[in-house]
């Protein structure tokens, strides 16, 4: 596929990816009772988007989807979290090469490695970056934002570990190896 074509694909994947993220956030987020935190199915979709279309599409799609969702539910986006979410998308996208999901072969080892990676990424994002941003920008009490951060870290990692992993496996199954499709009698 030519490069120009791929860039169009990235634009479309960003746009439609963001639309999916928006719809998932809006309709199937399961609230946990701690404000701002929910089991987010959209987070589980992110690794797949990232594995297929790479860091730019995943990062931007999350950024756009999340800010739109904030816009229409809370009136204005909570920028620190929106940005961190975008960065998590970028980080997942950086793992695209290693996963190489288009090959259709995705071994258990690769999946374990990816899960370790995502837990670390989520930790950096939700326990280190987001709360620090909240303290710096919004001046909220540290204990509150760190608790929110830790809960979000756990929930998002779980969401990626369960939903994300299953989606990766199922998608890989739909990829066909070169020259493999033959009619069977």
């Amino acid at each position: 596929m030519s490069n120009k074509n791929r860039s169009v694909q990235t634009v479309v994947a960003t746009g439609i990816g963001a639309a999916i993220i928006f719809v998932l956030m809006k309709f199937i987020a399961i609230p946990t009772g701690i404000s701002n935190t929910q089991v987010n199915v959209a987070e589980g979709f992110l690794p797949l988007l990232a594995a297929i279309y790479g860091p730019v599409a995943a990062g931007l799609a999350m950024f756009i989807g999340h800010s739109l969702n904030d816009f229409v539910t809370y009136g204005s986006p909570w920028w620190t979290w929106v940005i961190v979410d975008g960065l998590v998308g970028v980080a997942f996208g950086l793992f695209k090469r290693q996963l190489d999901i288009q090959s259709g072969k995705i071994s258990a080892a690769k999946l374990v490695l990816f899960n370790v990676y995502q837990i670390v990424v989520n930790f950096i994002g939700w326990v280190l970056l987001a709360p620090t941003g909240d303290i710096l920008i919004y001046h909220e009490p540290a204990s509150k934002v760190y608790l929110q951060g830790v809960v979000t870290w756990l929930l998002n990692s779980a969401s990626v570990a369960i939903i994300g992993t299953i989606l990766l496996i199922l998608y890989a199954k739909t990829r066909t190896k070169r020259g493999s499709l033959k009619k069977e009698k």
Binding site: V12, T14, A18, I64
Partner: peptide
């Protein structure tokens, strides 16, 4: 390109 992504969304 990014602007159009938003339009597509």
């Amino acid at each position: 390109r990014i602007s159009y992504s938003v339009e597509i969304t």
